[in-house]
């Protein structure tokens, strides 16, 4: 039944036209605008591209949490979750079937954004396997947090506030907008605790051509991102009963 719920959710996500705007058009617009601005300011265009494209990819990944909260609230408030409880569907199938499509969405989104950078700006992908591992870890991290938030969010507006804080706050502190080294020491100290920092550091380590793959940084980033994701997933499992009982 997980596959059926997964297929239904993927269909719903991609039937919604606004998905294409939020997932692809808006991030690409950001990349194009900021690439134009920073390429003019920087002597080394390659460095600017290597900051902007992975940076915005990491930043937009975390906005998936809004879409996740929306889906979970929709099914609870419409009575769908209650109705499904009268079928043969085991409750954990619902949780997994709703979570996995968002992982897939983030893999597609990251592929499109990094592919766009590669094709249009000549972004170096470096070690592709390492990039794939990081994209997967990022997807699990963001969706794990999204799943946990979906279990506790009582309204979409409240959740949007939390996601803005996580996505934008993490973007500033994690060095997604400006090179991390340019940030004040105090901000850098806090920034090292954000998943965005590790996402960008990992991607840049895997991608930067010529400097060789910094395996330790990549593995560290992958494990930290996966760790955050797993904590989010565990929290969601623990909170699932609370979430589902509200819709009855």
């Amino acid at each position: 039944m997980i596959i059926s719920i997964f297929a239904k959710e993927v269909r719903l996500i991609f039937k919604d036209k606004s998905t294409y705007f939020w997932l692809f058009a808006l991030p690409i617009l950001f990349i194009v605008i900021f690439a134009a601005i920073f390429s003019n300011l920087s002597d080394n265009q390659g460095e600017a591209i290597a900051q902007i494209i992975p940076g915005y990819t990491v930043m937009f990944v975390f906005f998936i949490m809004i879409s996740m909260v929306q889906s979970f609230l929709r099914d609870r408030e419409s009575g769908m979750l209650a109705r499904l409880r009268s079928t043969l569907m085991p409750p954990y199938h619902f949780l997994l079937g709703m979570w996995l499509p968002h992982v897939l969405v983030l893999i597609i989104q990251s592929t499109v954004l990094l592919g766009f950078g590669y094709l249009v700006y000549g972004l170096q992908l470096g070690n592709v396997l390492a990039v794939i591992a990081l994209v997967l870890a990022l997807a699990i991290c963001a969706t794990g947090l999204g799943l946990a938030l979906s279990m506790i969010a009582s309204s979409l507006n409240a959740a949007i506030g939390v996601v803005q804080l996580i996505a934008m706050g993490g973007a500033i502190l994690g060095g997604l907008w400006f090179p991390f080294e340019m940030l004040p020491d105090a901000v850098q100290a806090i920034g090292r605790f954000t998943p965005q920092y590790w996402g960008l550091q990992g991607l840049q380590s895997a991608m930067i051509n010529g400097s060789g793959l910094n395996v330790a940084t990549v593995w560290q980033a992958v494990f930290l991102l996966l760790g955050i994701g797993v904590v989010g997933l565990a929290g969601a499992i623990a909170l699932f009963k609370r979430y589902s009982s509200k819709g009855l």
Binding site: R11, L12, G79, M80, R83, S86
Partner: peptide
């Protein structure tokens, strides 16, 4: 329950986009 009961809720519970 899943095999022998068919429950129809008070509200229409369907995916409108499908």
């Amino acid at each position: 329950i899943g095999k022998h009961v068919g429950y129809v809720a008070q509200d229409v519970t369907l995916y409108e986009q499908l």
